[in-house]
Design a binder for these strands. Structure first.
Length: 873
RNA sequence: GGGCGAGUGGCGAAAUUGGUAGACGCACCGCACUCAAAAUGCGGCGGGAAACCAUGUCGGUUCGAGUCCGACCUUGCCCACCA
């Protein structure tokens, strides 16, 4: 055995070996429902193939890989796959900028990144690799779209898109900068109405909300984010009539305040605006509508929420008290939520209050604090939104708010002017993109038959490759006449293919299902396989996907369940959101924007100054990025230290959910630790007779230990071994605490080198244990040591060590002595001490003697085998 | 504005479910080895001479609080005119 640890030599060797023996292949599941396999599905969010891994990837995949390897050693059938979220805009941009076809660019990137993943030693089953831009994958994406169509969950409707008036093209949101300008032409982006495809996720709003309660293995904040995103509101729909005879429905969460509604506000985009406008106000209303239309979201927020609006010139009738109330138009009412029109109750709503104040509209309080006997005569300074009792409210007078809310619904229903209603913030999912590099929507537009889905037997609709991408003009597929024209599957007449492609979020909303049966050419997946492997037992990824990706995946799972394809309700049982990887950078406090970041390599750490201006800089950690120049390339770490060090460092440096500060010195420290482990084993093998002791350790030392033939020092070392097993196991299993798990490995290694017992069988047991416990974290080194120890098989197929409870028991324990709760000292005692003996020994101890000499003991608290606290006067 | 979370040495962080605060590591200091350095090994390392003081601040509960309760300060993230 080489005295030196040489990762550059051993890592490629084992990677090649593992590949040749198919070590990481997924075992098949027994599908007998009486005896289900102990299965575990470990999944990292698959990457976009940008061409290069970054440290965030390394962190994500290291976490999942440890879990996968740990589960395998614990006897689970593990599915641990990897794939590529390969459709998307960057490939198209590369084509526009450099003339490389998107497919070529994408597949080259995939090849590079796959190679990197393999060199990092992640135990993926590459036979199940999926690539979303490959026809054998998007075939089934299209098939799933047809399932949605058949379920009535896919539909077309006009919607606003970003339109670049210079390049005459539709832009994705990412192609519009923060000032609302096109990334290419710099033109101010306009809104344009186009027919767009939607998926009816709102039909599942209630289920998606309810089932969040079941996801106890998810971080609470992710559940809350989803809950807020779905945004359920309970209230009532009330129908107001107007002078012109048009009915105006409003949604309110405060139907109890209906008697305080003193005006109505409708959204500028509301279809009723024209009918509700008087001729003399028409010009003003149209001007306001145009102003609202030209505003983007930025303009709206930039105005600091100063209310704007215009009167229509007409009145509505408050249906409960027949009062005429003016109808206004204002952009603080959103067309996309509720009914696009509201009843304004300025006395009890902040926004309505501001609006009423600005335009001098009446304010009628109807809720008062319960203890307020007399109404204030001065006008309200602020809306009252708290609890209270109703007044001036007809049949609701005297009722508290909560009761009034219930009672008013009955009243509205009796009068035929309203009913209870639930509203969600969640909108239907706009999935069409006027882009090339995406999954074609399998629909044909026929002049005779209308919308005709492509028959399943004609799938996949292949994305053509001979496309000129310029970033200008109509949607790329629309320009391909020969591709577009197709015979209608119904009537045979010439018809047109849909030229929109799907949002790439669709591709990633079901990839975890395909992994269960990735190579199936006949079906989207075999139900037995999917039901056997799903749900994903552990999903790991970034918090940036907390809302959309996870919500869409949940939606897809439920729809496919309702189509009879799946039996699972939720795709991801446990979720871990890992923190960012941050790099050292410097900030010039006198500069703003991008210029303020000064990359660390331009700065002398002992005297950080701006290389251009000489101004002093502040050091800080920030998420690694090109613009900050603070990225660390995984390749460099691989070259210098190897994959095992990179993995160990990234797992040790911080708990997985927290942000991690990259520090080269700490990487070095991790490398040193692996060296020390290497030497612990090396020294063991250097001793004559080690092979016999190794055999003894393999048999287990339980008998030897129970015969009492171990020395005190040996029992101490053995305790350290079994404490390590217990702690590492618990840390991985219970709380993803890889940082403390690795610190336990360090403690064990320290205990071994401090013990001086290298020729004891206990040391052999320690070596055996250390190498096994290390295997999920540093798989190459563990494998190399395993082979150096004369073992033929792979360590990754060994069973995880078991704790010998007897070995954990210490001979002597430390008891703390406190006086009035303050620790004054400790003493050693036999482990089997009784409480009474413990108290006696504490009283007799030097520390106690010193402090108790002239005091009266009022009380003694004894915590078994831990401490004795004397409460003295 | 609403929601959630976090404040512990020079630094990253630990702390069994209220019981020795700072495990493990980084940095630093000293020693050994070396002509010297690197590497490695050994030792030290919250503050204070000590009594003691220390987990953002101030109170509370308790024999005992980093941990529980209340108020405040600082800070991070998510959603933000959602009726």
């Amino acid at each position: 055995m080489d005295a030196r640890y040489n990762p550059q030599e051993i890592e490629p060797k084992w990677q090649g070996h593992w590949q040749s023996i198919g070590l990481d292949r997924t075992p098949s599941l027994t599908v007998d429902p009486q005896q289900p396999s102990k299965k575990f599905y470990a999944l990292s969010m698959f990457p976009y193939p940008s061409g290069k891994l970054h440290m965030g990837h390394v962190r994500n995949y290291s976490i999942t890989d440890v879990i996968a390897r740990f589960k395998r050693m614990n006897g689970y059938a593990v599915l641990h796959p990897m794939g590529w979220d390969a459709f998307g805009l960057p490939a198209e941009n590369a084509a526009i900028d450099r003339g490389v076809p998107p497919a070529q660019w994408t597949y080259q990137n995939i090849a590079q990144m796959r190679d990197q993943l393999q060199r990092l030693g992640f135990s993926y089953d590459w036979q199940r690799e999926v690539t979303t831009c490959s026809p054998d994958y998007y075939h089934w994406t299209q098939w799933i779209f047809l399932q949605f169509w058949q379920a009535g969950l896919a539909y077309q409707q006009e919607a606003a898109v970003n339109w670049d008036p210079i390049d005459q093209t539709v832009l994705a949101n990412e192609q519009v900068d923060s000032e609302g300008r096109s990334w290419r032409s710099g033109a101010k982006v306009e809104k344009r109405l186009l027919k767009q495809w939607f998926l009816k996720i709102t039909a599942y709003a209630e289920q998606l909300l309810q089932d969040l309660d079941r996801l106890q293995g998810w971080p609470e904040r992710v559940r809350i984010m989803q809950e807020n995103w779905i945004g359920k509101s309970t209230g009532a729909r009330v129908l107001f009539s107007s002078e012109s005879g048009v009915g105006i429905p409003v949604f309110t969460t405060r139907p109890d305040t209906l008697w305080g509604a003193t005006f109505l506000v409708i959204s500028p985009e509301h279809p009723l605006v024209e009918k509700l406008t008087s001729p003399e106000q028409a010009a003003a209303v149209q001007a306001y509508q145009q102003a609202a239309a030209s505003k983007n979201e930025l303009d709206r927020t930039a105005e600091d929420r100063e209310k704007t609006g215009v009167w229509t010139g007409q009145y509505a009738i408050n249906p409960v008290n027949s009062q005429p109330i003016p109808i206004w138009i204002a952009d603080y009412v959103l067309m996309g939520y509720g009914t696009g029109s509201i009843m304004a109750v300025p006395a009890h709503d902040q926004r309505d209050f501001e609006f009423a104040q600005k335009f001098g509209l009446p304010i009628q309080p109807v809720v008062f604090p319960a203890d307020q006997a007399v109404e204030a005569s001065e006008p309200l300074q602020a809306p009252y939104t708290g609890a209270g009792v109703l007044r001036h409210s007809g049949p609701l007078d005297g009722l508290p708010v909560a009761e009034a809310k219930i009672k008013v619904i009955d009243y509205l229903e009796q009068q035929g002017i309203g009913s209870a209603q639930i509203t969600y913030r969640l909108r239907d999912w706009l999935i069409s993109r006027q882009r090339y590099w995406g999954c074609p929507i399998p629909v044909i537009h026929c002049a005779n038959c209308g919308l005709v889905p492509v028959p399943e037997s004609d799938l996949p609709v292949i994305l053509p490759e001979n496309v000129a991408l310029t970033g200008r003009g109509a949607s790329p597929l629309a320009q391909l006449e020969e591709w577009r024209q197709v015979a209608c599957p119904h009537c045979g007449q010439t018809a047109q293919r849909e030229t929109d492609t799907m949002d790439t979020f669709i591709d990633s909303s079901w990839y975890f299902l395909r992994f269960s049966d990735a190579r199936n050419p006949q079906q989207v997946f075999d139900s037995l396989q999917a039901n056997g492997w799903l749900p994903v037992d552990q999903y790991v990824g970034g918090i940036e996907h907390a809302i959309l990706h996870l919500l869409y995946s949940r939606f897809f799972t439920k729809v496919l369940r309702d189509r009879g394809l799946l039996q699972v309700d939720e795709p991801f049982l446990r979720l871990l959101t890992q923190g960012m990887v941050q790099g050292l950078t410097y900030v010039n406090p006198n500069k703003t924007g991008k210029d303020k970041w000064i990359p660390a390599h331009l700065v002398k750490p002992e005297d950080p100054r701006d290389p251009q201006t000489g101004e002093p800089l502040e050091a800080c950690y920030a998420t690694m990025s090109k613009s900050k120049g603070n990225g660390v390339d995984p390749e460099d770490v691989l070259r210098h230290y190897g994959a095992d060090t990179a993995r160990m460092f990234i797992l040790f440096k911080a708990p997985p959910e927290k942000d991690l500060e990259w520090d080269d010195a700490d990487v070095e420290g991790q490398f040193r630790f692996l060296h020390r482990v290497w030497r612990s084993v090396y020294e063991f093998i250097e001793q004559p007779g080690w092979a016999e002791r190794w055999q003894v350790a393999q048999q287990g030392l339980t008998n030897l230990a129970s015969q009492g033939s171990l020395t005190a020092a040996e029992r101490d070392l053995r305790r350290a071994v079994h404490v390590a097993i217990q702690e590492v196991t618990e840390d991985i299993e219970v709380g993803y605490l890889f940082n403390t798990a690795i610190s336990e490995l360090m403690k064990l290694n320290n205990a071994m080198s401090d013990s001086g017992l290298v020729t004891s069988p206990v040391y052999a047991e320690a070596v055996l244990t250390l190498v096994k416990l290390l295997a999920p974290f540093a798989p190459h080194m563990a494998e190399e040591l395993w082979s150096q120890l004369g073992e033929a098989g792979s360590i990754h197929q060994q069973t995880w060590p078991q704790v010998d409870a007897a070995a954990l028991v210490a001979d002597r324990i430390t008891i703390v002595v406190q006086i009035n709760g303050k620790t004054r000292g400790t003493f050693e005692a036999p482990a089997q001490i009784t409480d009474a003996e413990q108290e006696e020994l504490a009283k007799a101890s030097e520390i106690a003697q010193k402090h108790l000499a002239e005091a009266t003991i009022r009380k003694v608290i004894v915590v078994s085998k831990k401490l004795v606290n004397f409460v003295i006067a």
